[in-house]
Nucleic acid binder design. Structure first.
Lengths: 180, 180
DNA sequence: GCTAGATAGTCTCACGTGCAACTATTTTGG
DNA sequence: CCAAAATAGTTGCACGTGAGACTATCTAGC
């Protein structure tokens, strides 16, 4: 809980954690947006060890790899950008690096010569197969403080928020748009 | 989006050959670290409207204001950095701006002339009093998809993860160190 | 079938931020 | 009491990234 034991905090905290408005102050530690930010940053840096130090990838590159690894068919940079909600220029740069490192390859799409179909190379897939279990293990460690049921709860809650923020349909939407 | 028959061929061909075992993949959309990142980014940008457009603050500045607004006593930049888990140089720059805008003021600490005690000015407190209800309202909108109980659940789950990541004790630790 | 608008991807620019060096001060330990 | 380590805060530097311009291509409408 975002419950600290400093007296000031305790005195002014509302009993109900979900209470929409404390009296005349805002406890940053109970403020969900702040907590999400901090948590995401922390979790990210905990994972960074895996893909950064061990494999030389940064987050955008990992997102490209992960997207291509999950969908075994080739897809466009645009698609990856939409799915991962990452700016297209960021994806573009990651793609350039990954191409150079021969972790992915791209094929011209004769049907639409503006775009390129991206897919993992053998080397890239090997890396993916090696990397993602490590990342899942990390995730597991991070969520080890939760019971199986709590994890489900968490997943469901995140899902609801994502949905209400329109973060969810990206996959289907992108697919729909893409009509692959 | 010009996506047509060639893609279908592509997909099925690859599906046969490249995914003999569907088990060996990672669904980014079910990967909690990724989801947290995306969610935090989205929520942040939803809130940015409030403190950025309406009050000209960026996130670090808002964190300083929020910390000082919550604790009505003066505290050091270091303390804010620890509480908010923000780099001290980032806080330093935010403090410089806020001082210039006369939203906060700082007093030399005679007991330790390395540090300064920071506190909101009248102007700063006015802004705080105006801003934080707006932010709470936003938070409320974002969490409107959850019932009261679900919010409690969420809060509790986040709390557990925070705790296991040692994100929690910052406040007490900082207080202890600071002995304000 | 041509023009206007959309779309994929790249590139330049500006900016925020982490890192690390630096100054000034305090604390520690010999 | 002095030297060395620690700490608060600032600043220069490098880098990653979002915004947006730009090129090339495709689509739609007339």
């Amino acid at each position: 809980m975002a419950r600290t034991s400093s007296d000031i905090a305790l005195k002014t905290r509302q009993a109900d954690e979900a209470s929409p408005r404390p009296k005349s102050r805002l406890d940053l530690f109970k403020f969900v947006p702040f907590r999400l930010n901090r948590l995401a940053a922390e979790v990210s840096s905990a994972l960074a060890v895996e893909y950064q130090e061990r494999h030389g990838l940064d987050i955008p590159a990992w997102r490209v790899i992960a997207t291509l690894g999950f969908r075994n068919d080739a897809c466009s940079a645009q698609y990856i950008a939409q799915c991962t909600r990452t700016h297209k220029s960021t994806i573009s740069r990651a793609v350039t690096t990954l191409l150079h490192d021969e972790l992915i390859e791209r094929v011209e799409n004769e049907a639409d010569r503006r775009e390129f179909r991206l897919q993992l190379t053998k080397k890239g897939r090997t890396l993916y197969e090696e990397l993602f279990p490590q990342l899942l293990r990390r995730e597991d460690e991070i969520l080890a403080c939760l019971s199986a049921q709590e994890r489900k709860q968490l997943s469901a809650l995140l899902g609801k928020i994502e949905q209400s923020l329109d973060l969810i349909q990206t996959s289907e939407e992108a697919d729909a748009k893409q009509a692959y």
